[in-house]
Design a protein around this nucleic acid. Structure first.
Length: 464
RNA sequence: UCCGGCGUAGCUCAAUGGUAGAGCGGGUGACUGUUAAUCACUAGGUUGUAGGUUCGAGCCCUACCGCCGGAGCCA
C-alpha cells in the first residue's frame, strides 16, 4: 500500500491533492448531517488527522457508522483546508477500508485518559496511546542522538557480549545462563553441580555491564562506546530500577577523570538539545500532561555547565547544611538518595558531578588517587532522576590493580585478560555508564521507569 | 527484602457497621461541520482471595495475593 505519513500530510497545503493515509481510529464523532469525523493516528506524530467520512460512501451505513476507537483503517481522499477550528487540514474520504475492527465491548483502551498503572497491564496496546507513542518517539530520538554524538566524535560502536563468564563484576546479583536440566542437574563427585557439562562448560551469566570488555577495544581503537541491554537480578522495587535495561558505555584511552566528566557533560547536553530540536510536539505534550516544569528544566540544562565537586566537598557541604537527614552524613559512607537529591535539587538546582569517592566503597577497577584514600570515580546526578551516570578513570598500573584486586577479594586468574591490558601497552583510560531509561525519564518527565521501556522487566514481571 | 498506602461496574472514583452509586466508556434513539460534541433512554457488580467478629461487613480483625510510593542495591 502506498501511503503518506500523517506527520507529513499535516504540513501540506496543496489542497485538492489525493492522499492515502492509514492508521488507527482514535475517535469518531457523528455529525448531525449524517456523516462522521474520524480522528486517525498512525504513530508518526502525536496529532491525529481528521478524516471526513460522508454518509454517501458505499460502506458508510454498514461499516463506518459503527466504527469505534481502536479500529485500523486506510483512507484515500482529497486534502482540503479545514473549516473547523481544531485543525488546518483534513481529508475528505473517497474510500475508507476497514482492516480490523476493535470490539468496543472488549477493546481495553478508552478515549478517556487512563492510568499508567492500568496501561502497564496492557503493554501490547499502550503504544497506541498519546503518552506511550510520544515516549517511543522520544526514546528513539535519544537513541539516534546517542549514535550521532559518539559517531561524530570518532567513537567506534562495539557490541560487547550479553552472556558473560565473569561472575563478580562488582555490580550486583546476576542472572545465571544455563541449559542444564534444573530438575536433575549433573553432579560431580563432591555433590556440587557439574558446570563442565553445561553449554559453555562453565558458569555463565547475563551481563551487568559491558565495561570490562569495552576497555579491551578502547585500548586498541582509542575511543569506543557500547549500547546494549544490561541485566541485574536485584530484588529492586522502585520507580528507577529495571531488571533489564539499556546502558550506554563510552570508554576512552589516553583520558583521565576530567576528560571523562567533560564527555559525560557534553553527551547529556547533546541529548537534551537533540530532543528539544526534534521532539518539540511530544515534549510539549509531556509538559502539558505529565510534568509542567519539563520544558523549562530541559531548556535550562541544554547549555548550563554542570557543577563539579569532590565527594569530600559534598560531604562537607551536607554536614554544614544544617539539614536534618534521615541518614547521617559521614566521610566514608556512600551518599544516600536523600543526600544526592539535596545536592542536585536544593543546593545547586542543576546537574551535579561528584568525584573522587572513598576507595573502600568502590570497585577494584577504579584508579587509586595519590592520596591513597580515594579513587577517580564520578557520579552524575540529575534533578528528579538521581544518579544517571556512574564512571571512573580505570586503574592502569598493574601493581596497583593487583593490590586492589587482592584487597577486594577478586581473583586475578578469573580476570587474566583484563589484567593483560595493564601488562601490555597499558594507558590511562576512563569511561562511564549511562542508564538510558533514566535519560528517557528525564527527557519526558515520566515518573516511573517502567513506562519508558516498551516491555519492562522487574521482579515477578516478564509477561509480555 | 524492609516500611507505608491502596484493591468497589470496562475505566476513574463515591458510599457513619444498616437497600452498592456517579461520571466517563458501551448499546439504542434524537439532532445540518464536530473538536472532552450535546440530549434522552438503557445494559453493566460473587466490593482482590480465604477465614473471623457481628442480628447485619465494601467498611472492623487475621492471613494471603496484587498494585503504588519510599528505603536499600544501582544506571
Amino acid at each position: 500500500m502506498k501511503r503518506q505519513l500523517i506527520k507529513h500530510v499535516l504540513t501540506r497545503r496543496d489542497y485538492g491533492a489525493t492522499v492515502t493515509v492509514a492508521g488507527w481510529l482514535r475517535s469518531r464523532r457523528e455529525s448531525k448531517g449524517g456523516f462522521s469525523f474520524l480522528l486517525l493516528n498512525d504513530g508518526s506524530c502525536l496529532t491525529e488527522l481528521q478524516v471526513v467520512a460522508d454518509g454517501t460512501l458505499p460502506n458508510y451505513t454498514d461499516e463506518l457508522s459503527h466504527l469505534t476507537t481502536g479500529a485500523a483503517l486506510s483512507v484515500t481522499g482529497r486534502l482540503v483546508e479545514s473549516p473547523g477550528s481544531g485543525q488546518s487540514v483534513e481529508v475528505h474520504a473517497t474510500e475508507v477500508t476497514v482492516h480490523g475492527e476493535a470490539d468496543p465491548e472488549q477493546y481495553p483502551l478508552q478515549k478517556k485518559r487512563m492510568s499508567f498503572e492500568r496501561l502497564r497491564e496492557l503493554a501490547h496496546l499502550r503504544p497506541r496511546t498519546n503518552t506511550f507513542g510520544a515516549v517511543a518517539r522520544v526514546r528513539n530520538a535519544l537513541m539516534a542522538a546517542t549514535h550521532q554524538f559518539f559517531q561524530t566524535r570518532d567513537f567506534v560502536c562495539v557490541h560487547t557480549p550479553i552472556i558473560t563468564g565473569s561472575d563478580c563484576e562488582g555490580a550486583g546479583d546476576m542472572f545465571a545462563v544455563s541449559t542444564l536440566d534444573p530438575e536433575h542437574p549433573p553432579r560431580g563427585a563432591d555433590g556440587c553441580i557439574d558446570y563442565e557439562q553445561d553449554f559453555f562448560a562453565r558458569r555463565t551469566f547475563l551481563t551487568v555491564s559491558g565495561q570490562l570488555e569495552g576497555e579491551t577495544h578502547a585500548c586498541a581503537l582509542g575511543r569506543i562506546y557500547t549500547f546494549g541491554p544490561t541485566f541485574r537480578a536485584e530484588n529492586s522495587n522502585t520507580r528507577r530500577h529495571l531488571s533489564e535495561f539499556w546502558m550506554v558505555e563510552p570508554e576512552m584511552a589516553f583520558a583521565d577523570l576530567s576528560d571523562d566528566a567533560d564527555l559525560a557533560e557534553a553527551y547529556i547536553r547533546h541529548l537534551i538539545q537533540h530532543c528539544l530540536e526534534h521532539c518539540h510536539a511530544d515534549l510539549t505534550f509531556f509538559n502539558q500532561w505529565v510534568d509542567q516544569g519539563l520544558l523549562a528544566r530541559l531548556a535550562a540544562l541544554a547549555d548550563a555547565p554542570y557543577h563539579r565537586l569532590s565527594y569530600t566537598e559534598a560531604v562537607d557541604r551536607l554536614l554544614s547544611s544544617g539539614e536534618a537527614f534521615e541518614f547521617p552524613v559521614e566521610w566514608g559512607c556512600d551518599l544516600q538518595s536523600e543526600h544526592e537529591r539535596y545536592l542536585t535539587e536544593q543546593v545547586f538546582a542543576q546537574p551535579v558531578i561528584v568525584t573522587d569517592f572513598p576507595e573502600a566503597i568502590k570497585p577494584f577497577y577504579m584508579r587509586l588517587n595519590d592520596d591513597g584514600k580515594t579513587v577517580a570515580a564520578m557520579d552524575v546526578l540529575l534533578p528528579h532522576v538521581g544518579e544517571i551516570i556512574g564512571g571512573s578513570q580505570r586503574e592502569e598500573r598493574l601493581d596497583v590493580l593487583l593490590e586492589r584486586m587482592a584487597l577486594k577479594g577478586v581473583d586475578p586468574e578469573a580476570y587474566r585478560w583484563y589484567v593483560d591490558l595493564r601488562r601490555f601497552g597499558s594507558v590511562p583510560h576512563a569511561g562511564f555508564g549511562l542508564g538510558f531509561e533514566r535519560m528517557v525519564q528525564f527527557c519526558t518527565g515520566m515518573q516511573n521507569i517502567r513506562d519508558v521501556i516498551p516491555f519492562p522487566r522487574t521482579p515477578r514481571h516478564a509477561e509480555f
